[in-house]
Nucleic acid binder design. Sequence first.
DNA 1: TGTTGTGAACTGTTTCACAGCA
DNA 2: TGCTGTGAAACAGTTCACAACA
Lengths: 245, 245
Amino acid sequence: MTKPPQAGSDDTTAERLRSIPEASVARLAVYLRMLGELVEQGAETVSSDELAAVTGVNPAKLRKDLSYIGSYGIRGVGYEVSALQHRLELALGLNHRQAVALVGIGNLGHALAGYGGFSGRGFPLAALFDIDPDLVGIHINGILVEHVDAIPAVCSEREVTIGMIATPGPAAQGVCDLLVTAGVRCILNFAPVVLQVPREVELRKVDLAVELQILAFHVARRNLNGGQPSSLNGHVVNGSGGLEA
Amino acid sequence: MTKPPQAGSDDTTAERLRSIPEASVARLAVYLRMLGELVEQGAETVSSDELAAVTGVNPAKLRKDLSYIGSYGIRGVGYEVSALQHRLELALGLNHRQAVALVGIGNLGHALAGYGGFSGRGFPLAALFDIDPDLVGIHINGILVEHVDAIPAVCSEREVTIGMIATPGPAAQGVCDLLVTAGVRCILNFAPVVLQVPREVELRKVDLAVELQILAFHVARRNLNGGQPSSLNGHVVNGSGGLEA
DNA sequence: TGTTGTGAACTGTTTCACAGCA
DNA sequence: TGCTGTGAAACAGTTCACAACA
């Protein structure tokens, strides 16, 4: 570790968490998923080279990422799979469930609401909201769709910590404001707009149109290069991930 | 510009495209969307400060991003909105349509297939594939769902340049290989697995589970900090974007 | 011996600050 | 005068290479 350990502090204090680079956090989640698969396959230990190979990252980068959470591998051997898994869950804050609210039950919202992977991964869908009277009152996967006006009351009551916005663009800012009012401090935005939030709110964005345009850019570049890979070409560029169909 | 202009080369040559940083490409797509809205609002010109404000980036960064595509703003005035829009479209390779194939018509696949924003933005959905006999043969939004075995033939024939994978994890690699065989060189992966592709294939990933885990990490950190924003807190962290519900 | 953990070098990105121009 | 375009500085993230050690 870079810093001398504080007397009496353990390895999952705010000190440590605060210092993990954003880019590493994203990869830690990927390592965690792979460790789950390794556990199923009955693996006891895994080396940084092996784990790096299956997650598609550079082994040195993986070791550095793990060093941020102070994981102790065994030199000459590797990492104990289930111990590392546990450590990653702690570091990512997956030890307590995070209730999720989803606003906007359109095309994408339906898909998200029907996605089984949330509760399984510690993110139970606690509430669904829409503004359409035809949708309010129906159940999706056993969850009642409520009116957006109920967001503040319902979210506070059910202690929602994460909000997902899958509304049309023009409605997103209003919905976002309601979530913030309700005390939601982390928001995942699927609407194609730039949301304004107070400093203390964490906002992430998933923008399909942008993803496609980035790919289109690479198609264009490749064509200009006569189909030859350039220094920028090849392999995974982004790392985010995974909604099962 | 940094490099002396080549005689006879115009501003959208491979030379220039090759040198745009990856991070800038993602933001150019966001600027382009905002310019579209400005055009609708009848704006003639826009300054870097204004455009930066609505897209949530630093004005200097925006100007540097635009400098990569050699855009000529007018000093003392700003950028001519529609000229800039046109230049961005060229730089991002949006001047010719890119046919898109979508594989996996499950929960998410349905949502993607039903999303109207593709064709409108120059990405017509040219083919849908699934392995489920109950789905093969039906139409979604007027597009026939075909069997995955038909991927190589159909994709080559319809000159598909971009593939989207929305299958369950275990099926994704096989589908990916088929797309690559069919000559698809850009793939957007929604399945929660790490795909292996040849060097010349551009792969991007959208992973919802990871997005949520990153948010969970921030919830955890915030709680440890006693609810006070830290240096890392606040505002947009990621920038990708936009599937309307 | 084989693999971790990490300083140090490197590469890429962001921000600053200001010269240059309409 | 006001805003763009861009060197240069600062910062962040990645990769290298090797000492430390089970």
